[in-house]
Amino acid sequence: MVLSDLLQNIIGGVTVGATYGLIGLGVVFLWQSIERINFANISSAMLAAYLFYTFYTQLHLGFLVAFVVSIAIIAAYGLALRHLVLEPINRHGGDKLEFVVATLMLCTFWLSVVKVLYGGIAKPFPPVFGEATSFVQIGSISIPSVYFWIFFVVLVLVLVLYVLLQRTMIGKMFRATAQNKEMASLVGINVGMTTSLAFMLSTSIVGIAGILLAPIYFVSLDLGGGPIGVKGFAAAVMGGLIDPLGTILGGLSIGLIENFSTLFISSAYKDVISFVVLVVVLVWKPRGIFNWTTKGD
């Protein structure tokens, strides 16, 4: 094992880990805003990727138009989630659990819909972030150019989210709504508006992630469930469900654990090891290990 191998694996782990973190951000955002966990969180990534594929590759709309239209639809989908899933559940006395069950179903529902509409075969994503086989050579290390896009967007999104939630009035209103809806309305916060915005932002973040990740994940059903969904959720949990930066670090550590357990132990136990580590961490620190937003009780 030489140093370049190690670095190469760190880069691989960090990139895939960042993708987990990115997906986790959607979970964090909704939790921060309305204290609900959307188990169909990952569906937004798949839907955005397929929408972009449809607009860009099939309808030749151009990158910017395809991107904006896709994300706009995903944001509208977020709004629909609120009005067609959250509100009916609330109106009829349902709570967090009902929302979890409904969104779990929704996740499978979207997988079935996409399967029927597009078939199950993965499609290549157009090389909008550079050809899949274009690599940047730094010394003896070679990095696919799309990785730089991923790093860049993750960085920007974390920064934007952090500033939004911690520094802006609207972010504080989101958090107040999450912590006590009735009190939030009593201090003059339009809870309906913040809830809608929260849903739209949450699905949009994951939607952007979906388009960004499609070069690695392809335009495939893998973007709508499976490992990335579970690990994105795990990353969010490591950030205590509320810390964006912690979520990204959570994702990165999962990505690195996966790579290093393959490298130093065995690829056959990769998932077992990463999930055991995750469970241990959750039992040991249920509020998340990378959570600087809430301290103590």
């Binding site: 190469q8 694996n9 880069i11 691989g12 782990g13 990139t15 895939v16 993708t19 690695i216 994940y217 893998d222 499976g226 490992p227 990335i228 990505g255 996966e258 790579n259 290093f260 393959t262 490298l263 690829s267």
Partner: peptide
Amino acid sequence: GDKDVTAQ
């Protein structure tokens, strides 16, 4: 469904 096989 795995997308990174750097280690392998």
